[in-house]
Design a binder for these strands. Structure first.
Lengths: 141, 141
DNA sequence: AGTGATTTGTCCGTATGTATA
DNA sequence: CTATACATACGGACAAATCAC
């Protein structure tokens, strides 16, 4: 039995953009458990060297994953696998309605929502709105 | 009283990145009603000429708005102001829980969810999940 | 406290490909 | 077929945040 490191190649098949294929590879590395919550991904420079892409292309791939709420990027620090959130439970009162949308940058800052995480909006019958980070709330009847 | 066209300038105050300020300007032009649902935004080239930024910078600004579900970009066609969705109402059954997250590219394609729109996940007590585009659903108790 | 190295953020310019009108 | 418009990719440069020492 030969010991070997698993190298996740970018498929030579030119199906789709390179940054999308790289994102798919990284998504697999995360979902497969090779990279766990809190783990640091390779730096953009390392990914650039490893996959032979321009840094901008690497960043586009990371941007996709960030948009899915799968990773968190901290300037000067690194890129990390994000957790799923606690799942605080909120009971929907009579007449209240819940919907989801993406927050504006202002709302993101005020509610401390990371990029790529939606927002849950609960509207009561009088029109007042309550806002929650979408990954930290579960609604029950 | 002087008649004048309102020109949305990029504030000279260098607060934040240029693409974020441009996004804020465009967001205002949309929310103020100057640009309505379905309206076409200026082309990337026009925005580039108008604001004197590189096209990549323009695209980053548009990317922000796309990430908020505010605009829709169609290759070879243009950039358009997105509608808010219908608001189909779904009643939450006993034991069901609702949460929101961003869809993966696969889920986006299968549910025909535009970029920047979250997904509502309704989980029943037996673990089965129902998926809805987040901007086309409203949940009531 | 400070300095340098690392890492991500922003911005620019250019070129080419793909989709639509 | 041509022109327009968005998509992808590369390269370079400097700024800003963080870390290691």
């Amino acid at each position: 039995m030969t010991m070997h490191t698993v190298v996740f190649m970018i498929s030579a098949d030119p199906e789709g953009a390179r940054y999308k294929r790289l994102a798919a590879v990284l998504r697999t590395r995360i979902n497969s458990g090779e990279l766990r919550v809190g783990d640091k991904l390779p730096s953009e420079k390392d990914l650039k060297d490893e996959y032979g892409m321009a840094r901008e292309t690497i960043r586009k791939a990371l941007g996709l994953l960030r948009g899915e709420g799968l990773i968190e990027v901290r300037q000067g620090h690194g890129t990390f696998v994000r957790g799923k959130g606690e799942g605080r439970i909120v009971k929907l009162a009579k007449g209240e309605r819940a919907t989801a949308r993406m927050p504006t940058p202002t709302e993101r800052h005020e509610l401390d929502i990371p990029e790529g995480v939606p927002m849950m909006v609960i509207t009561s019958s009088d029109g007042k709105e309550k806002l929650y980070p979408g990954d930290e709330i579960v609604i029950t009847s």
